[in-house]
Design a protein around this nucleic acid. Structure first.
Length: 420
DNA sequence: TCTGGGGTCCTAGGACCC
DNA sequence: TCTGGGGTCCTAGGACCC
């Protein structure tokens, strides 16, 4: 037996915890650069503001209804996520962190106890301890737990917890009431293709012969079909799998035309990626850099390109990664375009060391000490206190727009909420 | 005018091996 | 004139997730 615990309107809920006057009001949270809507309170959903919608397209709804708009504050959300997970594990220890706002729970060890009671108590405690409302769905596979979670959120009277019934007819009713696109693992494209062959609900997919699903789609879709029938194809992954790639990229607040500015952006991404690599005690064996113009501006000349290079030996040393990134960037940069985005991608990531190079002359001990010192200073004095000159020395127009960010209530001494 | 960022997995096809 | 069988690895593209 599995469960999925999912935070309701997570980012919007985080904003509310520290600003209770937002309770009952429509709240939305925007993506980086204040571009798209990435989270909505229930009131905002009710106004018809769509997920992922560019904010300028719903500007009139926002103004007319006094919707509260917040820039995203990932420092806050990451920390709140950690607190929610910690609270849940007090009651249910075997978990898989699936995303910033979702946790799969392994209920098998608790199978002889009253699972509904445990889940209700978990939900209430998370709310009491963190202020974040969550919903929990229970099912015999992860896909069914996901489906049950949707019902827990939407159906009146569930009080935030729903268990898919064991009895076949009742379960079929729940599956029949779930649209095919709302099944975990079935997106818009496949949803359209399934509908073309007469599969419109989760129940239809569960009843389709598995090999037929595989033939027309692929094994992922087939596994989804099996899981909808109650045959588990995916287990709880308690140990996080090591990442294989890492991307650092940003759209620019304003278009960028010069190599000088673009190279600062690339250097910034490269430095951040290197820092993150070191924080995870890993090294990268490959680096690529990409840049592109604004694809929405069809009136302007378009350009996008990427370049790739091996890092030999694999490294997490900022100057190594920085040099490679800037030289790739230089080689793909073309004069005369308005650039909108640039990024650095690291691949061939390995953990705890990595293969050395036969002809490698560098003094690794020295690099390692230098990077340790750099990280320690930035850890103590704040991110970016010490940084490569190549990342730029002053604030630029292309830097991210973030006009309505809330304080870092839980992670920064100066931002801790005060009461009189 | 304004349109996010960061991941994973699968498949098909080509290059190459013995 | 006829031209094997069984593999691996890599890459690009397409789908999905949050």
């Amino acid at each position: 037996m599995y469960a999925l615990a999912d935070c309701n309107n997570f980012y919007a809920s985080c904003e509310r915890v520290f600003e209770p006057r937002l309770e009952g009001r429509p709240v939305i949270v925007l993506s980086n650069n204040d571009g798209c809507v990435v989270a909505r309170s229930q009131e905002a959903k009710d106004l018809g503001i769509a997920m992922g919608e560019p904010v300028f397209k719903c500007r009139s709804i926002i103004e007319k209804n006094h919707v509260v708009v917040r820039s995203s504050n990932y420092t806050l959300y990451d920390d709140m996520s950690r607190r929610v997970v910690q609270s849940i594990t007090t009651f249910i220890p075997d978990i898989e962190i699936y995303s910033i706002d979702e946790v799969f729970l392994d209920l098998q060890p608790l199978i002889n106890r009253d699972l509904m009671a445990i889940c209700h108590r978990t939900r209430q405690s998370v709310l009491d301890w963190t202020g974040i409302p969550i919903s929990i769905g229970l099912g015999s596979t992860k896909t069914l737990a996901k489906l049950a979670n949707r019902i827990a959120k939407k159906r009146a009277g569930t009080n935030g917890v729903y268990r898919l019934p064991d009895e076949a007819r009742a379960r079929d009713r729940d599956l029949a009431s779930t649209d095919i696109e709302d099944v975990w693992g079935i997106g818009r494209r496949w949803g359209r293709r399934f509908r073309q062959i007469g599969v419109a609900t989760a129940l239809d997919l569960a009843r389709m012969p598995a090999m037929e699903v595989r033939r027309q789609f692929n094994v992922i879709a087939m596994r989804t079909a099996l899981e909808l029938r109650g045959e588990p194809c995916q287990d709880i992954q308690e140990v996080a799998v090591q990442r294989r790639t890492m991307v650092r990229s940003r759209s620019f607040g304003r278009m960028v035309t010069t190599w000088e500015e673009l190279s600062e952006a690339i250097a910034t991404h490269a430095s951040r990626a290197a820092e993150k690599l070191r924080a995870e005690d890993s090294v990268a064996g490959q680096i690529s850099v990409f840049l592109h113009t604004n694809r929405f501006r069809e009136d302007m000349p378009q350009y996008h390109r990427s370049g790739i290079r091996e890092l030999l030996p694999a490294t997490n040393v900022t100057p190594m990664i920085l040099d490679a990134a800037r030289s790739i960037g230089r080689s793909i940069f073309r004069e005369g375009f308005h650039y909108k985005k640039a990024g650095v991608m690291l691949g061939d990531i390995t953990h705890g060391g990595g293969q050395g190079g036969l002809f490698d002359q560098r003094n690794h001990g020295r690099d390692e000490r230098l990077m340790k010192t750099l990280d320690r200073i930035n850890d103590r004095m704040g991110p970016g206190t010490l940084h490569a000159a190549a990342t730029g020395l002053r604030r630029r127009e292309w830097h991210m727009k973030r006009e309505n960010r809330s304080p870092r209530y839980t992670t920064c001494w100066d931002d801790i909420p005060r009461t009189r």
